[in-house]
């Protein structure tokens, strides 16, 4: 983390968060395609996996976006 430009830092942070989201999205798509029955299982507070995972993906997108917005370094020179 020492000598790296803010732009490169931001891009690495973005890629890491992207990879994380991709894993979860891929999991959702694969379960839907190959084990659709799992989606009916009640997992949390009486809700089934389809609802929990689906809402979870939307929430995760928002949380990762906030982490990114908060973690990014400023890389702009002040403009005239």
């Amino acid at each position: 983390m020492h000598d790296i430009s803010p732009r490169r830092f931001n891009s690495r942070l973005g890629m890491a968060l992207f990879a994380l989201y991709l894993v979860f999205y891929l999991g959702f798509v694969l379960v839907s395609a190959f084990a659709a029955d799992w989606m009916e299982a009640t997992v949390l507070g009486g809700l089934n996996l389809a609802i929990v995972y689906g809402f979870g993906l939307i929430l995760l997108a928002f949380v990762l976006a906030m982490i990114y917005g908060w973690g990014c370094r400023s890389d702009e020179e002040p403009r005239a």
Partner: peptide
């Protein structure tokens, strides 16, 4: 129908982390 919602939103992750800046 909600599957489309999930897919359409997930696309924004690509936009934010890879494309935007």
């Amino acid at each position: 129908g909600f599957l489309y919602s999930i897919g359409y939103l997930a696309g924004w992750i690509v936009a934010l982390f890879v494309i935007a800046e």
